[in-house]
Simulated scan of single mutants.
Amino acid sequence: MAILGSSYWNLIDVLKAGGDGLGDVVEALTQLTPFMKDANVVACNSGTEHRSTIRTGLPSVSWGALYQGIAQSKGNYTEVKDTTGFVEGLSSVDERLLNLKPAEAAKLRLVEGQGFLESIAQTVDSAIWYSDVKVNGKQFHGLAPRYNSLSNPNVVNAGGVQADNASIWFVTHGDMQTSVIVPDSVPAGVQREDMGRQRVLDGNGNPYYVKEEKFTQHMGLCVKDWRFNGRIANIDVSDVVAGTVALNPLLRKLYYKLQGRRAYHMEREGQVSPGRTVIYMNRMLLEALDAETSNGRSGVDNFVRLTPMEIQGEEVMTWRGIPIRETDALVTNEALVA
Results as ranks from 00 to 15, higher is better:
V278H: 12
G115L: 11
F140Y: 07
A291T: 13
Y255H: 12
L110G: 10
L66P: 11
R320P: 04
Q191L: 15
T33R: 09
N10P: 00
G275S: 09
R227V: 02
D328A: 09
G270R: 05
D94V: 03
L221W: 02
W63S: 13
A103D: 14
V61Y: 14
V337Y: 00
A71M: 07
G5L: 02
V80K: 12
N45S: 11
T327S: 12
T33M: 14
R231E: 04
L90H: 03
Q198R: 04
W169H: 04
N234S: 07
E193H: 14
I168F: 09
F215V: 09
E292T: 08
Q139L: 12
W129Y: 14
S62M: 08
A28W: 09
Y130M: 01
N248E: 15
K214S: 10
I322H: 06
P308N: 03
E88F: 15
T172W: 05
G115V: 08
F228Q: 07
Y256G: 06
Q198T: 03
V180I: 13
K211A: 00
L98V: 05
G115K: 15
I12Y: 04
T56K: 08
N333A: 08
Y77R: 10
E112S: 12
E95S: 06
L150K: 08
L58M: 13
T56H: 03
G160V: 04
M309H: 10
V26P: 00
N40K: 14
V190K: 08
F116S: 12
D328K: 07
V200A: 03
L336C: 04
A144N: 11
V337K: 01
K138R: 13
V278A: 10
A263V: 02
G18R: 15
M219K: 05
V210W: 00
T172D: 10
I12L: 13
R109G: 04
W319A: 03
T327F: 06
A106S: 12
V171A: 05
S73C: 03
Y209G: 00
N76T: 13
I235K: 10
T332A: 11
D20T: 10
L90Q: 00
P34S: 12
T216G: 11
A338I: 13
M309L: 07
G115E: 12
G260M: 07
P183Y: 05
K101G: 04
E95W: 00
P187Q: 14
S273M: 06
L330T: 04
L247E: 05
V124Q: 03
G243C: 09
T277I: 01
R192P: 01
V156W: 10
E334H: 09
G203E: 10
I324N: 02
D94N: 15
V42D: 00
I54M: 06
G21T: 07
S91P: 00
V41F: 00
M219Y: 04
C44G: 10
S60T: 14
G19S: 08
I70D: 14
T172R: 15
G243N: 05
Q72M: 08
E118H: 13
G203P: 03
S149H: 05
R227C: 01
Y256L: 05
K224Q: 13
T277R: 02
G296D: 14
E269L: 02
T307Y: 01
M195P: 01
R261Q: 15
E326M: 11
K37G: 09
A39W: 01
E193N: 15
E212W: 00
L97R: 14
D225Q: 09
Q139M: 08
Y67T: 03
G47A: 08
G69L: 01
